[in-house]
């Protein structure tokens, strides 16, 4: 993870199009490797809940890109029932899972959760607006999904 660049997902562990589900993994940087921990909190480094939400959103976004073959770009629209059950410290290895709940016309809903060694850390229900790719973003996303090892469905 590169928290300050919002680069939250390190690698795809499993992408299951039939199950409409993805599992990814991310390692939280060391305390002295990210300025985020200088402020959150001095002497008590913890990953902010908003960045855990972003991590779940990105796993969901990659799931949607994988399923739609990069025909539309998902943008986070709604966060429901977000629960943060325990603290996440520097160096933690996060298993981030997301599954499709419903895909409508122009939107999609997912359930996402983060665990560490099987222990629930946080979860949320997320919704995304599906839109045409803004200029150049598709190229960026193609490079990103290649970097994390996601092989999308053919559109």
């Amino acid at each position: 993870m590169r928290l300050e660049y919002f680069d939250m997902i390190d690698t795809v562990v499993a992408f299951e199009p039939g199950e409409k589900r993805i599992t990814t993994r991310s390692t939280v940087p060391a305390a002295d490797a990210s300025p985020v921990f200088e402020g959150h909190f001095p002497g008590h480094p913890l990953v902010p809940g908003v960045l855990l939400t972003e991590t779940m959103a990105q796993a969901s976004g990659y799931l949607l890109l994988g399923l739609n073959g990069l025909t539309q770009m998902p943008f986070l629209m709604t966060v429901d029932k977000a629960r943060f059950r325990t603290f996440v410290e520097p160096g933690a290895v996060l298993d981030v899972a997301a599954e499709l709940v419903i895909e409508g016309s122009g939107y999609a809903a997912t359930k996402a959760a983060i665990t560490i060694d099987g222990k629930p850390i946080c979860d949320a229900q997320l919704r995304f607006r599906l839109m045409p790719f803004p200029a150049d973003m598709r190229t960026l996303m193609e490079a990103r999904i290649k970097a994390i090892g996601l092989v999308p469905e053919q559109a």
Partner: peptide
């Protein structure tokens, strides 16, 4: 955006 919430 709100109409997408309604559609959902």
């Amino acid at each position: 955006l709100a109409f997408l919430d309604i559609a959902f």
